[in-house]
Amino acid sequence: MSARDTLELLTIDEVAELLGLKKWTIRRKVRDGSFPAPIRLSEQTNRWRARDVEAWLQALAEKGDAKKKQAPIWLREAS
Rank of each mutant, 00 (worst) to 15 (best):
M1V: 12
S2E: 06
A3D: 09
R4I: 11
R4T: 12
T6D: 10
T6M: 12
T6S: 13
L7Q: 10
L7E: 13
E8A: 13
L9Y: 01
L9E: 00
L10I: 00
L10N: 00
L10E: 00
I12C: 01
D13T: 10
D13F: 08
D13E: 06
D13Q: 09
D13M: 06
E14N: 04
A16P: 00
A16F: 03
E17S: 14
E17M: 12
L18K: 10
L18T: 05
L18Q: 07
L18G: 03
L19K: 02
L19M: 03
L19Y: 00
G20F: 03
G20K: 05
G20C: 04
L21A: 07
L21W: 06
L21T: 03
L21S: 05
K22C: 06
K23V: 04
W24R: 08
T25L: 09
T25D: 10
T25V: 11
R27G: 05
R27H: 07
R28Q: 11
K29Y: 09
K29R: 15
V30L: 02
R31E: 15
R31I: 09
D32N: 08
D32R: 04
G33N: 00
G33L: 03
S34H: 02
S34T: 13
S34Y: 01
F35W: 01
F35M: 01
F35K: 00
P36G: 02
A37F: 04
P38T: 02
P38L: 01
P38E: 01
I39F: 05
R40I: 05
L41M: 03
L41Q: 03
S42A: 04
E43I: 10
Q44L: 15
Q44S: 14
T45W: 05
T45R: 14
T45N: 06
N46H: 11
R47S: 00
R47W: 00
W48E: 00
W48H: 00
R49F: 06
A50Q: 07
A50R: 11
R51C: 10
R51F: 10
R51E: 11
R51D: 09
D52I: 05
D52S: 07
D52V: 05
V53M: 03
E54P: 01
E54Q: 13
E54I: 15
A55I: 06
A55H: 04
W56P: 02
W56M: 04
W56S: 04
L57T: 07
L57V: 13
Q58E: 13
Q58F: 12
A59V: 06
L60H: 12
L60V: 11
A61Q: 15
A61I: 15
A61W: 10
E62S: 07
K63M: 11
K63G: 12
K63P: 06
K63S: 14
K63L: 11
G64K: 14
G64R: 14
G64Y: 11
D65H: 09
D65I: 08
A66V: 08
A66E: 15
K67D: 13
K67M: 13
K68M: 15
K68Q: 15
K69H: 14
Q70G: 14
Q70A: 15
Q70E: 14
A71R: 13
A71G: 07
W74P: 07
W74F: 11
W74T: 13
W74H: 15
W74Y: 14
R76Q: 14
R76G: 07
R76M: 06
E77C: 09
S79Q: 13
